[in-house]
């Protein structure tokens, strides 16, 4: 198992490298980091532009710049992944990409974590209920809700949820749900129970928005895999042994039906990370999604690279965890 893990981690490195080359080239050809500066009115001093070009290493060729971005050799000490530096930002000379990402990662992880956990929990629950009552009214209702959720555009749904939150607050006459901001600032003045209510107030609505699509597709998946298992010979044998229905469902059906879900969730992590961009925008969280939008707006190539590398690593990591989990859950798979 350990050997397998090491092998997988080593195997991920060339994948990440290749992905970084591709994105680096793509970002480079798709925009000029100084585009905003160049079109400014009145036109800035050519010297200012030249200084900026030097600061951002734009005076070097693309391959050179890539090498520099990886190693930091020959740079000004603010670049080089291997040295823990992500490179200079276009947004300002003092903007530290690494520090910014680290700060926002905490905010986003909170959201992603909560959304993933709830999406899995609810998906398993509805999937199992739907499968056990196949073709009942409940099953049809859940199926309808699932497809509705899948069809709903996230930004639109986010708007609706936010409006609903505002409406609910007005109805109650208090700020029950926080509809704007991530609550980091407010949490500083709270402690104990207050921290919990603060987190709930800020997190409930965005979590609902972010988990919706994943929940819908995972619950459909769980329903199918559960149905398949419920019709299987070994579930029939478990019943024939005289085990009560509840034990059969939990121990024999659910246990095996969960195995394929691990892969689906791992693959779905990419979608959740994408989803944070829109969700954070609507609820005005200062998370990684917002960071990404700012980087795009500012043509900030190194910030973009940092974001892409981070999400790439996350997706690879999620897949590795899923594969390892698969090995634990399914004895037919053995990693040596």
């Amino acid at each position: 198992m350990l050997v397998y893990t090491v092998r997988r981690v080593l195997g991920a490195i060339p994948v990440l490298l290749l992905a970084s080359v591709l994105t680096f080239v793509l970002i480079d050809v798709s925009g000029d980091p100084l585009a905003n500066l160049r079109v400014m009115q009145p036109p800035p001093d050519p010297e200012v532009i030249q200084l900026q070009e030097e600061r951002l290493y734009l005076d070097r060729s693309m391959p050179e710049r890539y090498w520099l971005w990886i190693t930091g050799i020959g740079g000004n000490g603010d670049i080089g992944l291997l040295q823990g530096e992500f490179g200079p930002s276009t947004q300002s000379a003092t903007y530290d990409i690494g520090a910014n990402i680290a700060e926002r990662l905490g905010v986003t992880l909170r959201l992603v974590g909560a959304a993933t956990v709830f999406a899995i929990g609810l998906a398993v629950l509805t999937g199992v209920v739907s499968a056990m009552r196949q073709y009942s009214k409940l099953d049809y209702t859940l199926t309808f809700v699932g497809f509705l959720a899948l069809a709903m555009p996230t930004f639109w749904f986010a708007g609706i949820v936010q409006q609903a939150g505002v409406g609910f607050n007005e109805l109650l006459g208090t700020q029950f749900f926080a509809t704007v901001g991530d609550g980091t600032y407010q949490a500083q003045s709270e402690s104990g129970f207050g921290l919990v209510t603060n987190a709930l107030a800020y997190m409930t609505l965005p979590t609902i928005v972010l988990m919706l699509t994943s929940f819908a597709s995972w619950s459909r998946y769980q329903r199918t895999s559960m149905l398949e298992v419920l019709n299987s010979d070994y579930v029939r044998l478990a019943r024939a042994k005289g085990l009560p229905n509840r034990v059969v469902v939990r121990r024999h059906a659910l246990r095996t039906a969960l195995i394929p879900l691990t892969t689906v969730v791992a693959v779905g992590m990419a979608a959740i990370i994408d989803g944070t961009v829109l969700t954070e925008r609507v609820f005005q969280w200062r998370g990684l999604g917002e960071f990404f939008i700012q980087a795009v707006a500012a043509n900030d190539s190194f910030a973009l690279m940092a974001w892409l590398m981070l999400s790439g690593t996350t997706v690879i990591l999620a897949n590795l965890i899923a594969d390892l989990l698969y090995g634990v859950l399914d004895p037919r798979i053995r990693y040596e």
């Binding site: 010979d233 070994y234 044998l237 478990a238 024999h252 246990r255 095996t256 859950l329 399914d330 004895p331």
Partner: peptide, 8 residues
């Protein structure tokens, strides 16, 4: 297919 693959 009669035996559950995940239990001994």
């Amino acid at each position: 297919t009669s035996l559950n693959p995940v239990y001994t």
